[in-house]
Design a protein around this nucleic acid. Structure first.
Lengths: 221, 221
DNA sequence: AATATAATTTAGACCTACCTAAAAATTTGT
DNA sequence: ACAAATTTTTAGGTAGGTCTAAATTATATT
């Protein structure tokens, strides 16, 4: 079955938005904001994607990718990140110049091309931005560590390291009851000073300043 | 001004067909045969291309590329051939596997990408099929030598070499009044035995067997 | 619980790029 | 030169993907 350029972009958007909010349903408006289309256009497309069994869709109730839709979205992401790696590693683009070109290249259809490109690049695990590249089966072999302060997802964050290695900071962390491997949930984020309220291992809660949160590295589980 | 994927394919088709027949006007049916579309669809598109000043078009009279249209077509060809070179040289595709993928890649929009790809490949003059790659200004620095027997264009052929180097064949050629640098025109081609009637330097005419014609190399001027 | 507000969907329109069928222009054959 | 055959164009329709404006459903407020 054929999936168009535009349909692929919708699937990718739904995948990304769903990840941001703990794999929950994605709303029409979220998609229209993300894609900079009107909500009415999104509704049209959702019907078509549902006909093709790429999403589960009930009107007014938001949307989720089916396994087939998810597989398609991850394949597009795989292609995008491999092409970004190619553009930076081989063609010597700057990392900030490659996004628009990769947006086009990600839609080229050829399984053999993806596989050969992957080999040519030495089967990289991450793209130039540090984002993980899924393998041909759709599996992400690495998770990216990011600053807690820049985590977009609220749930299922695991502490994997720190970027401030001073004993002062590490002492502060242990006093706060935060250790490597702990599970964090962002309960509140305050935009005026970018401080966070965090729940640790579903037990105790605490406030973290932006400075502290930016030095805690987490992965999305 | 934006030129769509489909419009680019029409321009490429018109360019190729025009070259086959001494840069003459191209007919609606030639285009529809080549693109495997219906003639009515071609007429639709020709009107749009004419609106965009990419072709000169008068109804019932065939069509020619404008300078702007020609420049666009050559740029697409440049991209196609550079990508083919990449696929074969770098990704180790076989030369006969790359065409469909290059048909997609040729429409990626980014001048910087083309230039960087060209440099990455070492500024090749020809693609893996021996077809010349135009430079960024649209100039072809080499002409491809082909067997006279496989020339699709009838006019403006220049003798550049032979593939049978036997003294017997060379003697036959000089007896026939054909030498390096001579200008040839195909006046007739007979499909039952693939023999050709040739005019040499706009002066004398002669018949050539398929065997003889397949050993004479020519370029298109 | 009724109403106001926000989110979503429907209705109707447009453009690109294709199609079929019929009409018009051109070319060919005698 | 005129009829026949061929080529090309016009007319009208379809599907994808977008839009605006209006209607519907869901959510929030009081």
């Amino acid at each position: 079955m054929l999936i168009s350029y535009t349909e692929e972009n919708y699937l990718k958007a739904i995948y990304a938005l769903s990840r941001l909010y703990n794999d929950s349903e994605v709303s029409t408006n979220q998609i229209s904001d993300h894609l900079k289309n009107k909500a009415a256009s999104v509704t049209d497309m959702l019907k078509r994607l549902a006909d093709k069994k790429l999403i589960d869709y009930k009107r007014y109730k938001g949307v989720k990718l089916t396994d087939k839709g998810k597989k398609t979205a991850i394949k597009v992401i795989r292609k995008h990140r491999l092409w970004e790696a190619f553009l930076v590693e081989k063609l010597k683009f700057k990392w900030d110049e490659v996004h628009d070109i990769a947006e086009q290249l990600e839609h080229i259809q050829s399984d053999e091309l993806i596989q050969k490109l992957d080999n040519f690049l030495g089967n990289p695990k991450c793209d130039p931005h540090g984002d993980p590249i899924p393998d041909a089966t759709g599996k992400f072999s690495v998770q990216r560590s990011i600053a807690l302060s820049s985590a977009k997802q609220k749930n299922s964050l695991v502490v994997t390291g720190v970027s401030d290695h001073s004993s002062e900071f590490l002492k502060y962390l242990s006093n706060s009851g935060i250790a490597l491997g702990d599970n964090l949930k962002i309960e509140e984020s305050n935009s005026y000073d970018r401080s966070l309220k965090i729940k640790v291992n579903s037990k105790h809660s605490l406030f973290l300043s932006h400075k502290a949160a930016s030095n805690i590295l987490v992965e999305i589980k």
